[in-house]
Design a protein around this nucleic acid. Structure first.
Lengths: 198, 198
DNA sequence: TCTCCTAAGTTGACAATGGAAACATCATAG
DNA sequence: CTATGATGTTTCCATTGTCAACTTAGGAGA
């Protein structure tokens, strides 16, 4: 025994530790080579331990994604609250900025949230969080184009934001384009496009 | 021996057969559980055979993606050629339609082409095909907004198209939205947005 | 025609993975 | 104080990607 710390049999807060280890691993390693065992290793725990908290690797990933959605929704709401301009366009522009900032700052979670890995389908928490985000977007859109055209407008906003996020995160963006400037110009074009007759 | 067909030791055109088997497998099974061995099994060949044609699973996927880009570029050019309207907006609308039709009809390849799996980086054929597509898009955009604003416009078009494609392919589209109508309305809004001052 | 040579396939091995089962440890409700 | 359930561990299994060594066949050159 000596002065060696006796590792307790129970971790204390393994669930949290595993989620952190997973996010860290995802930040350092491409998704497809992050393994359950590697995550367990990082948390200093046997490879079968995660099974008791999440049923499978997919379950763990689904949980990471769900947490991502919590942060996502919170940040989007906060960003909107910071805007004191009454014009709905200002809110929309802020939302697009916040969306892309989130994608950049939460790269691992973002990939899981919108990447649609087959193994983590059917997580009710995920579906709910996604639906909430969509509803909020439609409400914002309704303030600009009215209720009737809101669904189409929301789709437009989401498509552009998500598409741009993918291009930026994948580094598929042509190198001569500046990221921040691209975000601003896309936001401008999206807002202008929404006002078109459809 | 009897009447049983003697299976020849050499397949004849295994390379092609493997690519087809891969696409078929990808169409039936989620990407992450398509294995090299499964593909070899479908082609009726030993599990190590693919190594001689593609070095690894990533190499095989890269080849599938490269083929996808060939079809993609061909279809985009053909779609543009079918439009006899001189208005550049008409060409752009046709291009957006063609893009999404390709995504829908080539689901497995599309995922590989734009999904950016880490294991198939650095395939020169892939990079070249992607760059070609991007250049063509910028040229189309230049006809609408001029050379200077063409890069930003191209980014807008690609983001919206790609984002919408992801939403449709992932079935993340809210169920109350019609796919074809969504494509048309997004195309309209994109074209309107391009004309905004930036 | 005979002989190599090499591309194309095969077999067998390896370490790593996700998952299941059986077991160990502990915290705490009664 | 004890039983019970949650939390971890160990062991095992089928499957995977990759490698090395082997076999086969189809031609090119003598």
């Amino acid at each position: 025994m000596l002065l060696a710390e006796k590792k307790p049999y129970h971790h204390g807060d393994l669930r949290e530790a595993l989620l952190n280890a997973a996010e860290q691993a995802l930040a350092e390693t491409p998704l497809e080579q992050v393994s359950l065992r590697e995550i367990a290793r990082r948390a200093g725990v046997s490879h079968a331990a995660p099974k008791h908290h999440f049923g499978s690797l997919g379950g763990l990933f689904a949980e990471v994604a769900a947490r991502g959605f919590q942060r996502f929704n919170a940040e989007m709401i906060a960003a909107s609250a910071r805007i004191h301009d009454d014009a709905p366009e200002a809110h929309l522009r802020a939302a697009i900025r916040a969306y892309l900032r989130f994608a950049a700052n939460n790269r691992p979670a973002y990939g899981l949230m919108f990447g649609k890995r087959a193994e983590m389908e059917n997580s009710p928490a995920l579906m709910a969080a996604g639906a909430e985000a969509w509803t909020r977007l439609e409400n914002d859109a309704a303030k600009i184009v009215g209720t009737i055209r809101a669904p189409a407008a929301a789709l437009m906003i989401w498509s552009c934001s998500h598409g741009l996020a993918m291009l930026i995160l994948d580094a598929s963006l042509p190198p001569h384009l500046n990221v921040d400037a691209s975000i601003e110009s896309i936001a401008t074009m999206v807002i202008a496009g929404l006002k078109a007759e459809v």
